[in-house]
Amino acid sequence: MFEALLGNGLILKKIIESIKELVTEVNFEVTSEAISLQAMDASHVALVVLVLRASEFEEYRCDRPQTLGVSITNLAKLLKIAGNDDSIILRAEDEAHVLTLVFTGKNNEKMCEFNLNLLTLDSEHLGIPEQEYSAEVTMSSSEFSRICRELTQVTDTLNLSVDKESVKFAVSGDIGTGSITMKANNSDKSEEKLILNVSDTVSMAFALRYLNLFNKASSLSDEVVLSLSPEVPVVLKFAFDLGELKYFLAPKIAE
């Protein structure tokens, strides 16, 4: 038996909204420690890694570890029915064929119960070694989101350069070229604050289309942490009370 009660159901709605355009069918691994998933997008250039810690749920029980194959598309449809103030219970019997979702209103005035059919999915796990990155950028997630969105109007590729003092977001397209440079600072204003942890200067290129999809998670966390090393995928980390959502994206490489 697996059962998890989340008082703040909105966070689960936001998480699924943040990944549903990247991954459509995923295996959730449920253990006594956490609910987790790791899934690549269809073109295998982006990876989503989610961990929700058991200790952060209001109630949590997992008698034996289990893999739950879930259609994210269908889960998103059901979660749309849950109100923003609802609590959500996730429940599955051992060797389950369905995932039961229960949405309960704040004043217990209304309860919705749905059984989502589970899928048997091939798992394609990537082994990701722990790694030291050359540069780590911590900044406002809404500011990063805004920069990516605005620069998408110029072109489809973001050139990201980080040194010890600043981070530069540069683009080059048919209409011209441009860049946005932000200096490291410890502003009281969260949208201005930028923390750099840089051992080596890096300069890399990424598809803005993917970064814009990742930035849907900016509703989960005020901050985003970008980890960069030459010639390896960039990591965008969004941390929140319940756990963390990380996106990996392979760099673009000049032909």
Partner: peptide, 14 residues
Amino acid sequence: GKYQEVLSKFYYVG
């Protein structure tokens, strides 16, 4: 033109 490598180039498939 530019292209994007698949992730399995960087991380082993387990």
